[in-house]
C-alpha cells in the first residue's frame, strides 16, 4: 500500500492504495464518484474517461499510483459550485445525445478535453474525437451534434463555465 495525494475535482485529497489499483475503482469505491462508468475494464469503450492534468484518459487502465501529485477531474467536477451544468453537459442534454446514458459521462469528459485543444474543430475532427468511446444507443450522430454545439458556444463565449 502507498499513500497518494492529488487534487480531485478541485479539492486536495489523499488515499492509501495498492499501487496497481485502477483509478476507476479508487474513484468509484473510495470517493463515491460513480459518475465515472465501468464499461469494459480494458480500455476499449471509453465509459470511464476522466481528465488527468487536463488530458482524457481511460481510468480503468490507470494505476492509482500515477494519480500522485496530479489533477483529476471527473464528471462530478464539471458543474459549477451552484450546480449549473457545464456547457458540454448542457449541449449533450439539449442535442438528444443521451439515451441510456452509460457512455455519456465518458463522452462528455472526452469532449471537454478535446474542445480545450481544438476550439474550432472540423466535422471530421469532431467525429474522430470520440472514436475511442463506444455508444450503442445513439448511433453517435447527436453526440457529434452536441460536440459541435458545445464548440460553437465555448468558442463564442471564450471561457468555460464550471471548473
Amino acid at each position: 500500500m502507498i499513500e497518494i495525494r492529488f487534487t480531485l475535482n478541485g479539492q486536495p485529497v489523499s488515499a492509501r492504495v495498492a499501487p496497481a489499483l485502477p483509478a476507476l475503482t479508487l474513484l468509484r469505491d473510495s470517493f463515491g464518484l460513480t459518475g465515472t462508468k465501468p464499461g469494459c475494464g480494458e480500455g476499449e469503450c471509453g465509459a470511464c474517461t476522466i481528465l488527468l492534468d487536463g488530458r482524457a484518459v481511460n481510468s480503468c487502465l490507470l494505476p492509482s499510483a500515477l494519480l500522485d501529485g496530479r489533477e483529476v477531474l471527473t464528471i462530478e467536477g464539471l458543474e459549477s459550485p451552484s450546480g449549473t451544468l457545464h456547457p458540454v453537459q448542457r449541449a449533450f442534454v439539449e442535442a438528444g445525445a443521451v439515451q441510456c446514458g452509460f457512455c455519456t459521462p465518458g463522452m462528455i469528459m472526452r469532449t471537454v478535453a478535446f474542445l480545450r485543444e481544438r476550439s474550432h474543430p472540423s466535422d471530421d475532427e469532431i467525429a474522430r474525437s470520440i472514436e475511442g468511446n463506444l455508444c450503442r444507443c445513439t448511433g453517435y450522430v447527436k453526440i457529434q451534434q452536441a460536440i459541435r454545439a458545445a464548440a460553437d458556444e465555448l468558442g463564442v463565449g471564450g471561457t468555460e463555465g464550471g471548473s
Partner: peptide, 16 residues
C-alpha cells in the same frame, strides 16, 4: 424535447 432524465445521466448522478 430533450429527455427529462438526460441531466441526471449527463451529470453522473443517475444510479445504475
Amino acid at each position: 424535447f430533450p429527455k427529462l432524465d438526460a441531466p441526471e445521466r449527463a451529470s453522473g448522478r443517475a444510479v445504475y
